[in-house]
Structures are given as C-alpha cells and as structure tokens.
C-alpha cells in the first residue's frame, strides 16, 4: 500500500519535473541576464516562467529584484510580497523588501500589537511552512518510535526515558503543526494589495465626490476589506480606512 503511494508520488514529481524543464531553463536564462545587468531581459524571462504556469519564491524574488533595479517601485514591492507570502521566513526576501520599501513615499506606522501575539507571530514566521510541516512529521515518527521502544523494554529506567522522549516528540510535533497553521493563517487571513499609481486619493465613501481623506503613493501595502462597485475599502497598517478605486491596486 505504502509503496504504491510513494511510487505514485514519485511518478507525479518526475512528470512535473519533465514538464517544467522548459520553465527551468527560462529561469536560468533570466538569472544569467540579471547577472549581466540586463534587467529588462531578465524581467521578461522571469515573466515567461510565470506565463508557462510555474512559480516559486525564487522566481518572484528574482522578478522583484529586476524591478528594483529598474526602479519600478510598486512592481518590485508587489513581487517581493508575493515571494514573502510563499516563504515568510526567508531573510533575503525580507531584506530586499526593506530596500524596495525605502523607494516609496508613504511611511505608515504600524499599530502596536500585544507582545504575546507578536512573539507567536515571530516564532511562527521563523521557519517556512514546509519546514514546520516536516518537523511535525518527523517528530510524529520519532514519538511513535519512542512509544514502541517504551512498550518493548521492561527495565524501569529505560521505560521512563522513552516515555519522556515520546511525550517530548509528541509535543514538538503538535506544536510544529500549530506553528504551521498559525503561519498559514497569517498568510491567508489578510488580503493585501499593493498600490500601483504614483498618487491616489482615498475617499471617505465609495464615490469621488465625497470627502477626501488622504493620499497614498505607489508601492504602499494596504489590506482590502470590502468592495462596492468599482471601489474598495482599504485599511492601512496604522488602522485608518478609506475607499478608493479597485483598479488602483493589485491584490497579492
């Protein structure tokens, strides 16, 4: 049964690999163009990878780097955010995102979060979703092993040791699963969007005749709360909300 499952998985992986080889070579070509400083070309090649229907955090990251080099503020932030969404723990993505964010005009201060929440968030984002998943799986197997050994051994000292190990591994596995789901929630919970036009007006109501609340500039990240006609209600990091045209931003 198990072998059948794994062989099926292998077949899937291999066939996907074969199919994605063209996309892979595009990716490599893009990397070479980037290395030579031909950012427009690398941009085109990476976009082709996406056009072929493939993605990875590396593609988004490299695409964002190319946009950064070409001074495209919004696009670069947009793709860094997309890469970050795939792997929120990657330090290179975070680092270059700060560089890209420096290019934008708006500076919005985040609302202070409770410390416990902040700590949980940081822990959950310390590793990638896949890493957490594997930790959970491996811990599960180790816990199982300890459990078996615990039963087979008759000496009290050994039994005690393996029971402790069993409890520890079970806890680790469960905690990793929880961390992974926390990270998943962080990723999915808020629907973020990046503002593309150089300067937009944000209104109090979904109509351009209403009171103008504030202006936002290219590259600012907002969360989209609701939509009405061609307007969307957006919320900033500092908690202020307003309505603007949905065409002005691109959702992540």
């Amino acid at each position: 049964m198990k072998t059948t499952f794994f062989s099926t998985l292998m077949v899937i992986i291999i066939s996907v690999n074969a199919y994605s080889q063209a996309a892979d070579s595009l990716f490599v070509a893009g990397n070479n163009a980037y290395a030579q400083g031909n950012y427009k070309e690398s941009l085109r090649l990476y976009e082709k990878v996406l056009d072929k229907g493939y993605m990875s955090e590396a593609v988004y990251f490299n695409l964002a780097n190319s946009h950064y080099k070409l001074n495209n503020v919004a696009e670069s932030i947009y793709f860094y955010e997309k890469a970050k969404k795939l792997d929120p723990s990657d330090p290179a993505i975070k680092n270059n995102l700060t560089y890209a964010e420096q290019m934008r005009v708006d500076e919005i201060e985040a609302l202070p979060q409770p410390e416990v929440k902040e700590f949980t968030k940081e822990t959950a984002l310390a590793l990638s979703l896949t890493s957490w998943s594997w930790i959970a799986i491996i811990s599960g197997f180790l816990a199982f092993g300890s459990f078996i050994v615990y039963f087979l051994r008759s000496k009290t000292a050994q039994k005690r040791l393996f029971f402790t190990l069993f409890v520890t591994f079970s806890f680790t596995g469960l905690a990793s699963h929880l961390m992974a789901s926390t990270q998943e929630r962080i990723i999915q919970n808020s629907q973020y969007a990046i503002i593309f036009p150089e300067e937009i007006k944000v209104y109090a109501e979904p109509n351009p005749k209403s009171e103008r609340l504030f202006m936002l500039h290219e590259g600012t990240k907002v969360s989209v709360e609701s939509e009405f006609n061609e307007f969307s209600k957006i919320k900033l990091k500092d908690g202020s909300t307003g309505w603007t045209r949905s065409s002005y931003f691109k959702e992540l």
Binding site: S20, A23, F27, Y34, S42, M55, A58, S66, N96
Partner: peptide, 12 residues
C-alpha cells in the same frame, strides 16, 4: 541588497 536566488523548485 541581496543578489537573486539561483536555485529554485518550480511548482505549477
């Protein structure tokens, strides 16, 4: 500013 990533694991 970090250089591009050269390795990838492309997914659909």
């Amino acid at each position: 500013f970090k250089f591009i990533k050269t390795d990838t694991n492309l997914r659909p």
